[in-house]
Amino acid sequence: MHKVLSNKLAIFTFVFPGLAFFLFMFVAPVILSFYYSMTDTIAPGLDVNMVGLSNYTELLFHDERFWLSLRNAILLGLGFVLIQHPICIFFAIMLDRIGGKSEKWFRTIFFIPCVISVVVISRMWLTLLDPTFGMFNKLLSVIGLDSLQHVWLGDPNTALGSLLTILIWSGFGWGLLFYYAGVKGIPEDIYEAARLDGAVGFKLHWKMTIPLLKPVIAVQMTLAIVTALKQMETVYLTTNGGPGDSTQFVAVYLYNQAFAASQYGYANAISILFILVCLLATFVSNKLVKGDSIEY
């Protein structure tokens, strides 16, 4: 048995393809990106001029947009953590309580937006929020709130909030599914015991379910932060960072720098810092929220 399971050739055959993919698709690009980040090249394949670390100093000390996009990511992350996830947790617990056939049906319906392409979602919401014929403004007028009608994605004050709404709508199903899985992992007899002790309703869940979900919450919080940082497609396809820079995000910024502004070298410097920020955020939020049992 031991001999078969420590067969060196087999281990190599099993691990090598995956590792090769990782090296080719993650490590090599990062190294190449680091190289380009020290040049002022305008597009891949064109003249390469070494400029040392000047792209980085420019980025860290003179580029307001970069910091603005990080700020937006933090705001969005807070939105996820404070609004989306509590909603998901609430629904996960209630879904488990509702039971029977309807439990299955509601779970299925809530997840449907998650299987729709980001391109469809973005274009759909662009039209939903359109100031002239958008459904959202129409709905407001139907319920008599004409005064609230608005150019939702076109106003710097509401653009980020509108984006958060779109992302909460489209990401709700995944969050719900993970918390629901967590709730399902709690044995029913624990609830019985708590009820015998007199805990009911809201108090029962606050004192029992939430603490027992702590490992799942810990992982999900980290994912929420990283998701906010990585935000790209929905933004790119709806506001493209605008109006002004009110919805600027790091990934959108670097993409436009590389392919629209012909600042390929500079954009690679953003990429490198972007990776560092993501890894740092993962590390920090892992440390902050880590329960004692979960490993990730």
């Binding site: 281990i11 990062v30 670097l254």
Partner: peptide, 30 residues
């Protein structure tokens, strides 16, 4: 399977979840 470094390699592979694909887009394009 039993081999040295398996938890290290496992952690490295999981890093792939955290690295944003948008950051590797530019070099991969090249």
């Amino acid at each position: 399977m039993q081999w040295k470094g398996r938890s290290v390699v496992y952690s490295i592979i999981l890093l792939g979840i955290m690295i944003p694909i948008h950051a590797t887009l530019l070099p991969n394009f090249a």
